[in-house]
Nucleic acid binder design. Structure first.
Lengths: 226, 226
DNA sequence: ACCTGAACACCGTTCAAGT
DNA sequence: ACCTGAACACCGTTCAAGT
């Protein structure tokens, strides 16, 4: 028997300084967006970078530090409307939509944030912007703070709800199973649910539209007659 | 050298049928509440039950099935107010508060739900109840479905936000670090944030009160003049 | 049938070593 | 300094074996 060369990836030694924090974060985000938090592994990350597993540790203390940096970087990419582009109420709406969009476009960012308290995970610019708009809309200080937190909570909850649903529907025959379950429900025990089942399914298929409806209601309730 | 007995846990063979699904779920919930999802391990679970790791597999297909069952069980323990105890609006509020309370009392339940799509994770009774109340409050079918989803999203988001914050504050000196960071912010770049920093911190220290404020606003916005 | 330990294929990370 | 593979202490789960 002759000695054969290894078939799988006879990876050469990576050239010096080919790796840097930015390249690592790019790869991490792409990996997370493509395959989710479960597949986000130091080994997978290194492989995507074409580098030995331990090479990453020269640039980050460990996986947690990478996760923190990813979260921070994504939060900083939230797209905000130009300042003063509309009346405060409408502009506020746009800011919230920007936050929602980020979280639905990067579902794993949201998961990262929920999994573990993240160091310095504040989207400072966004917070300041929202608070300013709430004050401009006529809310006194404490009320503005309260309203801001409520808006963020609703936004995070909506994004989470929708990505969860999206993931669940990916499974084979999930839609049919839900349908069958709803149809099998005793009408006399759950009258409202059974009669509104189609509406419920339809509403949830329309993530962004549903988010905006609730957002309008929440803003209306928070700002009131201001 | 003499052969010594093993010092650590010379656990006897567990008596037959001492284990059952309910006991396992109890242990799982207590473990999750006490130590969080990170410590929720098949090995830790078995140890808490005083049993070999593989014993659990005689009752559940695997960890995922246990997680599903835990989620289902917790959702079924949501405490609801007696039906017809108040006018629909007030009763609806109570139902939402019940959902919020469950999620803040069992933070890991929320994490379980966000980590993975869970089979049959519907709190059927709660959904039916909320839909019924929304209709009783005067909303037409589609609007009731929309409102229900919005309320759940806000509730989940609030609970998540607060447990996250609670966990973050557990860390040594976390409070001081946040304070310092806010103080170090340039006032001219983030005027609203800097001036409202105290209010922001205060609002977030008051989870349930903040939740109820936002809830009232949301219900107000959703039901409007109904 | 129910419970067991050994073993397997993973994971994050430590360490000593190469360049 | 940056990158490497081997090794360690974990994890969920498969398997063959005990009672």
């Amino acid at each position: 028997m002759s000695v054969t060369q290894p078939v799988r990836s006879p990876r050469r030694r990576a050239p010096r300084n080919s790796l840097n924090p930015d390249r690592i974060l790019d790869a991490a985000i792409s990996l997370l967006d493509r395959s989710g938090t479960e597949a986000f592994t130091m080994r997978a990350l290194a492989q995507q970078l074409g580098v030995g597993t331990m090479a990453v540790y020269s640039h980050f203390r460990g996986k947690d530090e990478i996760s923190d940096a990813v979260a921070q970087r994504l939060l900083d990419t939230i797209e905000l409307p130009p300042a003063g582009c509309a009346e405060p109420r409408a502009e506020l709406r746009e800011v919230c939509r920007g936050v929602y969009r980020l979280f639905t476009e990067h579902p794993s960012a949201l998961q990262l944030l929920t999994l573990r308290p993240v160091r310095g995970d504040d989207a400072i610019t966004v917070i300041d912007r929202m608070l300013g708009l709430l004050r401009a809309a006529g809310l006194p200080g404490t009320e503005a703070a309260r309203a801001h937190v409520a808006l963020m909570q609703y936004t995070v909850g909506s994004a989470l709800w929708n990505t969860r649903r999206a993931r669940a529907l990916c499974e084979e025959g999930a839609r049919e199973r839900v349908r069958a379950k709803l149809d099998a429900l005793p009408r006399d025990r759950y009258p409202a649910l059974v009669s509104l089942a189609p509406e419920l399914l339809c509403v949830q298929d329309n993530g962004m539209a549903q988010y905006e409806r609730g957002l309008d209601a929440l803003i209306e309730g928070l700002l009131g007659g201001c």
